[in-house]
Design a protein around this nucleic acid. Structure first.
Lengths: 192, 192
DNA sequence: AGCCGAATGTGATATACATCACGTAACCAG
DNA sequence: CTGGTTACGTGATGTATATCACATTCGGCT
């Protein structure tokens, strides 16, 4: 299935757009191809776009002290990603995004999103719901962080996204869980 | 300033409504008065409303194992609160909300919010931005959780909301930070 | 004023995890 | 194939924090 159709079905779950409206909506997206390891957003630079993943897997991450990396999100097909803080507030990125695998993505500028939201009520509706889902997911993750130990969070992550186990290296999973790679290694090798 | 005016100025920061439109918008809200300690949302029960705080301070919290409490949010004037997961998905509440102090709040049903969003494009715009701010705040807190130790998070919280120091008991601050009350006590009593 | 439960301080001990260190295996590019 | 980089496993040790226990103080009621 091509990118346009994937986005169309994704939007259709929350908003009602005529074919003409969707064509107009889609005309603001630019398709991009990335290779494994390529950088999409680099901390310290300006951010003008958000990204909708068609295929592949990206990560959005924060690096502190030039040393420790924390992964905010693994972005899989039909997920959106960006440094939304920087994007909405027009500040420099503090979060970076790069490709864990080769990836096809659709790119939408901040300006165009606001323009479309203004022009099409249903587009605004869609983006409200998208953000809402992100908010709920973030809150759920925060609660899990406070409430569960690493092992439970690890199993939670894998039961939610089993494909991650073979797709991304273990030290990235550790960076998502917020523990060291050594601790994670010991956790699932404590067989029995 | 009365409740209606507070809400009006709050909305005006993100959305443009005529006086007539705002009057219509406001007509869906119901003012309520609560006493310190009163319960607004009780885990396990249905949730039909979200709440806009006019005065006082509420907390939204999760209780695990009938023992440990984690505070998701201190809701201060002009903040919104509810169990949004339960509200949007029409499931039973997993999060409770109660009053830390006496409070005046405005209450809006889930049904009415969706109705207004559908009728007034600018209302949908407002709620998109409100949710967006919540999402960014939640993401920031998550990052701080992974990246900073308890002391830094404690200072972060107090520099953001200095009034909390005298307003809420320390064990609630500990429950927000995700540490035991003993640890928090030792932290700021470790005066050399 | 005086009482009682709630809030807070503080010691002792246990534990999960970070960190450092080192070794091995897998992967890829020349 | 080969050398180097990346991923992964595992031991030893230090540290922040949880937990339990108990003492003390505070604040709201009657």
């Amino acid at each position: 299935m091509e990118a346009k159709e994937i986005l169309k079905q994704h939007i259709a779950k929350t908003a009602t757009l005529t074919d003409e409206q969707f064509d107009y909506f889609f005309s603001h997206f630019k398709p991009l191809s990335y290779k494994k390891g390529q950088i999409v957003i680099s901390a310290g630079e300006k951010v003008d776009h958000e990204y909708f993943v068609i295929s592949g897997c990206l990560k959005a991450f924060f690096i502190n002290d030039e040393i420790k990396m924390y992964i905010l999100q693994f972005a899989m097909p039909t997920w959106w990603t960006s440094d939304y803080g920087a994007l909405y507030n027009q500040t420099d990125a503090t979060i970076s995004v790069d490709c864990i695998t080769d990836a096809e993505i659709l790119c939408l500028s901040n300006h165009d999103r606001e323009k479309i939201c203004n022009e099409l009520h249903q587009a605004e509706h869609f983006f409200r719901w998208r953000t809402n889902r992100g908010y709920l997911a973030s809150q759920k993750r925060l609660l899990s962080f406070m409430n569960n130990d690493t092992k439970v969070r690890y199993e939670e992550l894998l039961s939610l996204y089993p494909q991650l186990y073979n797709l991304v290296p273990k030290h990235l999973i550790a960076a998502y869980l917020g523990v060291s790679r050594e601790t994670l290694s010991r956790l699932y090798n404590a067989h029995k």
